[in-house]
Design a protein around this nucleic acid. Sequence first.
DNA 1: ATGGTGGCACCGCCA
Length: 263
Amino acid sequence: MRIATYNANSIRSRIEPISRWLAMHQPDVLALQETKVQDSEFPIAELAATGYKVCMRGQLRNNGVAILSRREPDSVLLRLAGDPLDEARFMQAVFGPVTIINSYVPQGYEVGSDRFRYKLDWFRLLREHLERSCSPTQPIVWVGDFNAALTDIDVHNPKRLWGSVCYCQPVKDALLNVMEWGFVDLFRAFHPEPEHYTFWDYRIFNALKNNIGWRLDYIMATASAAAACTDCRIDPEPRGWDKPSDHTFIWADFDDGKMTHSA
DNA sequence: ATGGTGGCACCGCCA
């Protein structure tokens, strides 16, 4: 099974690249973040030609998550318990033995701000949700835009960027705390070398061309899912697109036979 | 070099 993730930054403006990517890479599941559309305006008809099933939770203007999947999920959860703002940033879907968590972690605005505290709280609430409702022995794949870089090789200029809202000690600790519950960073497990990024800021001149990027999007897996993973990749595709995109696709392949619950 | 991009909404906010 192939599981992919992509921060769309408005799904309505990326129908074409998403459709093309689905046709080319044939994932079983594509998790999307920043769909930026209310459910009533979601472009179901425009995606119909892809043949993928859609489930989503959006809101006006910002945020919004969705899952496009080859077949309907067995069950879906759309809210992160305890989220004080109840923003559309979380989705959990079950496909047979595999549970997929799709998250759009708050960006945090500025270190020390209310929104920064919300970001740290969000990671903590996710950990609490996992402790309450999941087991690290299950095959769980946690994907999305985490708005967090983990180490120096996840950012283009670690000295200058350390201390910023997506790369600082509290955020690193908050993400590590969720990982310590039982997740492996699949991309890093397969690709230990530096200079692989998933996000290039629009506001930086020629960021994509010069690879001035960050690795903020992840596919994480519990031990049983990680053991079934055969590869995890970042797609360099947006370099070739007519229309710019600030994030790119990440995907992982799993051996279905090994994706079973291990006690 | 004190700017710059992009998307959605509204007459600014967020990334």
